[in-house]
Amino acid sequence: MIDPIFLLEAAVNGILLSGVLALLALGLNLIFGVVDIVWIAYVDLVMVCMYLVYFLVMIYGWPLWLAGLASVALGALLGLGVHLLIITPILGSAPVNQLLATGGLLFFLQSFATFLWTTDHRTVRLALPILEVGGMFLSFVRLIAFAISLLAMIGLWVFLRRTYIGTAIRAVSQDREAMALMGADPQRVYLVTSAVGGAMAGVAGALLIIQYSVHPFFGAAFGPLTFMICVLGGLGNMVGAFVASVVMSEIISIGGVVISTEMGYVIAFVVFIVMMFVRPGGLLVRRG
């Protein structure tokens, strides 16, 4: 029998992990909702941002916060680049082509990262304490990462609710054609969306590199999970994304302690598949 304290610790760690995952899912969700294309290579952009932070901090000695800002900027640039170079030419193509174009980007980024930086695992180590709370060991780094991802999500929420262009982005995700009739150039809205989605990847990259090591196949490890949380959350539903993220992270975290890491993922993915049948509009949306 497993000590309940381990379970509790796993549960808390699950919640801490869910912050970054929710952030990623929201970024992807934003792009999917507006442009209607799943960026298969989304988490590979995160991987590139993680490398940036690693090199800036460990090699060039930048302070972490500045490297984090650089990561956000790089993410936004990557988002713009992906949209302009890959998505724009295939906007009218068949869905399978759209999936494949960003799938090609996935191969490209993984291999190019292998070529540039080899398959070594790299980490940014922070001299922050491990907290002991009632017998549980909690990483202070993870607490901070969780707090920052919450802040980033609130920032995104304010942007989408309170700014003009943010409202326009939500409008486009509800009815693209009607928004063109209002005078919004779809391409401009797509670009802003892709940049914001990319910036979210940048934030996530900075938060992930202080918790996990980065390697060229990082995207393959986190990518599928991110897609699933994105879909489970429901399009354009921020609360849903967070709830989905918590559910999936808890399954993985607790499943990982009770059975094995892989089985944790297996259960999470099976839950995803079943939920797609039961609640196709997202966890919080009843079948309409």
């Binding site: 409202t167 326009a168 939500r170 409008a171 009815d175 054609e177 928004m179 009739l181 354009g236």
Partner: peptide, 14 residues
Amino acid sequence: RIFPRLSVGDNLRM
């Protein structure tokens, strides 16, 4: 073709 999940006010803003 109104934006169903936007408020009436936001629809007018758009």
